[in-house]
Design a protein around this nucleic acid. Sequence first.
DNA 1: TTTCGAGCAGTAAACGTTTTCTAAAGCGCC
DNA 2: GGCGCTTTAGAAAACGTTTACTGCTCGAAA
Lengths: 347, 347
Amino acid sequence: MSTAPNPPADIRTVAKRARVSIATVSRVMNGITTVDPKLVARVVQAAEELNYTPNTQARALVSGKSGMIGLIISEITNPFFPELIQQFEDETVKRGYEMLIGSTNYSPSRMTQCIRRMVERKVEGVAVMTFGMDEDLLQELSSRGIPVVSVGSTQDLQFATAIEVNHAQGIHEAIQHLAVMGHRAISYIGGSVDLLVGRQRQQAYVDSMAQLGVEVTPQQIFQGDHTMDGGLAAAEQMFASGPMPTAVLCYNDLTAIGLLHSLSRHGLRVPEDISVVGFDDIHMAQFTIPPLTTIRMSCSDLATVALDALPLTPAHTKPSKPKPNRVVPTHLIVRQSTGFLRLPPSS
Amino acid sequence: MSTAPNPPADIRTVAKRARVSIATVSRVMNGITTVDPKLVARVVQAAEELNYTPNTQARALVSGKSGMIGLIISEITNPFFPELIQQFEDETVKRGYEMLIGSTNYSPSRMTQCIRRMVERKVEGVAVMTFGMDEDLLQELSSRGIPVVSVGSTQDLQFATAIEVNHAQGIHEAIQHLAVMGHRAISYIGGSVDLLVGRQRQQAYVDSMAQLGVEVTPQQIFQGDHTMDGGLAAAEQMFASGPMPTAVLCYNDLTAIGLLHSLSRHGLRVPEDISVVGFDDIHMAQFTIPPLTTIRMSCSDLATVALDALPLTPAHTKPSKPKPNRVVPTHLIVRQSTGFLRLPPSS
DNA sequence: TTTCGAGCAGTAAACGTTTTCTAAAGCGCC
DNA sequence: GGCGCTTTAGAAAACGTTTACTGCTCGAAA
């Protein structure tokens, strides 16, 4: 029980105890097969007895590989990202890597800091899962030879592999779904238009509406900020600005939750009085009241596609070519926040 | 624009360009003041021109400090933890450290793996923020000289500083609050009783009820599992098992959200028909329908208390003594999921 | 029996820092 | 003007690995 802080055993100690050279120990630890099984056994036993763990820093220093992959997200408090992180963690350890997380909180200074940390820690690749990252910063990474994969950046990055998300597909499905149930007055609460993804989703909404023969007016588009608070604020503005739509499509689930909250506060019932559609399909979406109809963007897809696109070479592995870019699909998940259009009580 | 992958500048290159020795460069980079300002200027300029970043691995290797702190949580998809992580990140970078996250998902194998990773990466301290960690594993860490701080472990750990959370206080406030509004039939949906924190909260509930003169029966205690799904399941069991209570205290907010969902499905109104209290005060608690009365456990308190308890010595800093253990308080936040007891319609 | 080659273990040189120690230079005091 | 002390820069030794290279041993072929 005594906290005997015996100095952590190093490779030399193991070598001595196993009566071999440090090179042999190194070979055994790395699973190199050209070692006499007898020696292997001795080394393994010695290592176990000494509770030996190779020093990662030394390993990294000499091999030049840190065994870490950076993941940059915008805000960890948006439940979508933890779900994504989880998938990423699974995938990175599966590939023999460690994950270094950085969250930008949409703040340029934090972005810079994030990138600096990634560079300093010598990550072997960075997945940028936040929309709206400064391109200069990505350039910075790639100029240092760090592969970058980015979702939802401008399409034509020379220095980063772009991952495409087919936002339009899910949004199209959602609008169709609403249309089938009789809705035409469908408003949209967007994210920040500074971000490409914000523009893409908004455009998809406008296009899908056009296919219905409905010209979207600026009065139908409200501005959110990806958060519940933003959804709430946009909803209040909606109430203030004229007749309510019969359905609302939201930039993401958080926005939709804020909206639901506001609707409930104003006494509107969902879906009887108004239908609501979210985006992301966070786990929470199943537990809103009513359960949220939403567009699913699969975290595990995102994680695997991103990691596949990174040219990683774990220790003692042949370099695997990055797989061709894949497009991440989105799909509508129908729950109970959408329903048939009901005629207003006056008619 | 060309991705000139010029080899990352090392300290020697900088030294050469600044016409000084590498020792001087090292001193400048570490802000050691005994260097001629002229040389400092030369070095700074050279470093900037070469876009030099010191190699963290080499630094870590020689100094024996990795500059990383481990944070072990149970499941990242419980929104409480991202909020905690956020606070932790803020606090660790403030202290000049990096954060390495490991999530156990309550799985023993993942715990072991987590600890192994922490050891391998030579973290300088570990904060265990999950309840119910194997003590052997903590022992393993501390036997390697890694300081450990743990919240909600058994109180008497020799090899880890324990952080105490005063669950009883908030729970007492909650029960009092409900009692004042006339409630006596107050049930409880707990977490896993395997975990100390689960037992502590449950005990606090039983004690607070006793102070009201109410003896809690086993029929009033239901079993959750910290998740929304668990809350939902417990609620269904509650419906199945007899007359509903007039108020329910939940192990955490997620459980409460699951409960709310089930209540809504069964047509019960909150708080008119039944009052609900959560625990944690995650951000989402403000956006449930109705907004959730809950017991706040401050993430930033938790983060600072934990980090303060770790004897950290960032590079070029005097060792700061760990501050004395502090107890993290909890408090009731009243929102709209609790209300006065109404007589049942029959009377 | 000799020679050559294959197989395998050990030696030593990196990797990029920090840091101790040494030496040189500048300065004040006698 | 010389001596000693202080200040500051450089040389070199670590830190714990991986890996290229060297050299030994043993077996097979001539």
